[in-house]
Structures are given as structure tokens and as C-alpha cells.
Write a protein that binds this DNA or RNA. Sequence first.
DNA 1: ACCTGAACACCGTTCAAGT
DNA 2: ACCTGAACACCGTTCAAGT
Lengths: 268, 268
Amino acid sequence: MDVARSGSEDDPDTPRGRGAAASDVPAGAPASGRPGLDRRRVLRAAVELIDRHGLSALTMRRLGAHLGVEAMALYRYVPGRESLIDGVVETVLDELYGDADVHIAPVHGWQDYLHRLAHGVRRIALAHPAVFPTISTRPPAAPWIRPPLRSLRWVESFLSALTSNGFSDEAAVAAYRAYTSFLLGHLLLEVAQRGVPISPEDEPEGSPEVTVDLDEYPNVQRLEPHLSQDESAAEFDESLETLLDRLERDLVASRRSRPSPTQSDPST
Amino acid sequence: MDVARSGSEDDPDTPRGRGAAASDVPAGAPASGRPGLDRRRVLRAAVELIDRHGLSALTMRRLGAHLGVEAMALYRYVPGRESLIDGVVETVLDELYGDADVHIAPVHGWQDYLHRLAHGVRRIALAHPAVFPTISTRPPAAPWIRPPLRSLRWVESFLSALTSNGFSDEAAVAAYRAYTSFLLGHLLLEVAQRGVPISPEDEPEGSPEVTVDLDEYPNVQRLEPHLSQDESAAEFDESLETLLDRLERDLVASRRSRPSPTQSDPST
DNA sequence: ACCTGAACACCGTTCAAGT
DNA sequence: ACCTGAACACCGTTCAAGT
């Protein structure tokens, strides 16, 4: 279960001794980070902007203003807007690497690991609902790198967890596919359900309440109370358990037909 | 199984007697539709533009040019770009209403219906891969209208099919949720895997082939052949069957605990 | 080394004006 | 009734110039 740190790219231009230079500034500065721009600072500001006002509010000019700088200054740290958005996706996903709950040694094998990983991704989706659709739909680097697990590191970690626990290569890949589409489908819908900030300042004023006439849709009308209920959390857990159970059944079945070729080590 | 026609909005401003005025024009005009703009024509041109060059290529000015008109003329038929995109989503989804394979009387009850519907949605996703991410992520009209089944009509049709076949209200809603997240997860990933046209003219020239060094990711490296294989179609079918089987099991189990309260009519 | 001013091409959108 | 010209505010991006 070797999972190291960040993925973005090792920027060797970090101008400080970790926590030293950060002390002579409010540390939680509200908007304008005077002390010196920095790729990481730019990306984090971009995430903040999207979180607060939606993706369409992320313009080079606004991001510059947010950082107390002209837009053109950003091109030192980022090749352009598209690539800035890629960086935002990486930055948000990088939070997973720092998520203690995902990293503690799994006490119940691979199931525990997949369980923790799934909830880690869910926390990220809920923390950055305006970013998650972008995480889900940006074209991945390779066709088999499936969102929302968009980095080689996580794919490796996933496959390693399964193959070192008795899964055949084919089964591990199949599990990877099932797992990612489960995460994507559920979390995208959960995030959509919550309503994401779209463009500038949602709904101008006293909402006109676009109430549709449901008379022609009797089932929808009758089930409206059920439909409106937010069961996302429970559903996520249930579906996840269902998936893990299925994977385990398949695993056991495969062990029976092709008896254990050296029971793997439960190390780490 | 009552499913009527289009959903967009009943535009009463159609300036012709259906097929009469359309006869004095090539009928399959390649780009510039001289004879008179029309909301439907505008939307279809927008779909074509996205299909060919990606969402970012859809600008009011380019769409106008494509239709042989200045951009400002489009504002007669569409309130603005955002709403144009909503119209594109509706237009593409409307193809489902005309899909014969979805509409024929289901010969094997609700399972047959869900099966046909799923494949209908999949056909649409594959026919318009550049539109599907937008279908998946545009904020729905109501929180419980879940992509990719974005219209009241389909939700009604879905719920009707299940509740008239023995499903309780709760079970029907749960099935609706499971079904939509299945569709979304699978199809979004299948479409992403195929690589969608992003911005202008993919890859300028002889692709530099960004080959990543896989040495640090031994499992990924070993499984690369498996991972690269496109099993989307088979996986879609398998996962769909798994889902339908689970729904059926739950249905049977519920019948046992609460014996049939009037076996419903299999009409239409 | 880092940022800015000015400029360019291209946006969405409004509105008075043309036909 | 339908389309256009001109204009406005706002984009992304380049590049020579400032400090």
C-alpha cells in the first residue's frame, strides 16, 4: 500500500523552509497574497474562486485580481487557462494524498481499503462540488485512466491492493472499472442534486419558483415526496457494500475453480 | 408506457405547412440554411458544430456563420448562449423519443423496457460523445431529475413502468436512482475513453506521444494490455444485467413479505 | 527575476437602424 | 418580421518594456 505524496509536478522553486516564511504573514490572508506568487498559491486561489463562484468565474483576469496582480503575471506559473484548470483538478485530487482516513493501514484487507478510498473521494466531491464535474469530464491523460481516480499513483495503489490480495489480473482490472464507474455515477449525481453555483451570483433575486405543472405526470406527482428526499449518503454506502460484496463473491468463486497459487502475503 | 413527442417547448411560430416550404430547398443543405431560420434549425446546427469540433467551438458568432447569418440574428431564436446549450441537450435527448427500439412494446416486462431504454441512451452517448458530458453535468431543473434522464417525461415513463409491475413506490424510486447512476457512470467513462474533440482541431501535428515512465508503477505496467482493452460494450451489458437481476431479486423478496395487493394490469 | 501596458483577436450581448 | 452595423464590456494571450 505504498502511496507517496503529491502528484502535480515537483516544483523545485519553493522559496521557503516550510513554515518559516509563512509566519510573517497573516497565514490566512483573505485575498491578496503579497509575499510572492507561486504555482501552488495560484492553483489554490483558482480552486477557491471556483468553489465560491463556479467554474465560469475563473478567468485569468479575475484570478489575477484575486491575487493582487495583473492577469499576465499568471502566465509565469501556468501555460494558459486550460492548463490552469488541469492544475485545479490535480490540486483538489491531491487532497486525497493528505487524507489520513484513507492512508491508515486497512484493518479489514482490500475491502476496507476500497471503502476508505471511496469515502475519501466522496469527501472531496462534497468539499468542492463545483470542481467535481470537471474532475469527472476532463479527458484523461490515457484512455484507461478513469476519473475520478485520475492519477497513475491511485491506479497503481488500487491494482496493487487487489492483486496482492488474491485477485487475478483480469479481476483486478474489472474491479477497477466497476469501482470507478460506481464512484463517478453516484458522486456526480449527488453533487448535481446539491445544486452547484453556476455563473455569477446565482438567481438574481426573489426566485420566481419555476413550478412545473405535474398533472400530466401522475407517478412523478405522487412520488415527489420520495423523489425529493436526499438519501445520497445511505445510498452511497449501500451501493458500495453491494459492489464490494459482489467483488468478494467473484473472488471466492475464482479461488474455488483455480485453487490458491500461493496464498498471498497480507503485508504492510 | 405513454411517451409522446418532443419536450423542448411548443414553439407556435413555425412558419410553414410542414414539408411544403421545405420542398423548394435542397432539403439536405450542407451548411447555410438560407430559407428561413428556425429554432429547430439553430439547435440542430449547434449540435452539429459540437459533434464536429467540441463544445468550446460553439460560439454565437461561429454558429451564425455556419447558418449564413450574423451572430445577432440568433438572439431571435435563443435567449443566449447558456440557454442555447440547454437547447442542445434537449435536442439530443429528444432523439430518444424517436428511437423505435426504445418504443416497441416490451416483450419481457419492465426488465425488457429498462434494457431497451439503457441501450437507447447509450446510442445517444456514442452518437454525440462531445455533448454527453454536458448532458451529464448541466444542473437539472429539479434536484430529483437525474441525468442522463433529464426530462419529466422519461422519469414518468420509468416510474410508471416499475410501479405498474409490482414495484412499491419506494422500490421504484430506489430503482430510478440506481439506474441513473449506473447509466451516468458507465457512459461518461465510455465516452471519455473514446477521446472527445476538445477545442480547435485536435493535436496540431505529428503527436509527440507523451509516454509516461511506468517504471514506478509496476502493476499498471504489467496490466497495461488489460487496461487498454476496450470492454465497454460487454461491461455495459453485464453491469446492466447485474443491476436488473438485483432489482428483480428485491422485487420478489418484497412480494414474499407483503403478498400481492392486486396483481397489476400489464396493459399497453 | 518578476510584473505591467499596450495591443490583438475573439467573445456575448444590446439596440437602434435598415429592409 | 427578420436581419445587420456599430458599439460595449469582457475575454485569453503575446510581447516589448519597465523595475
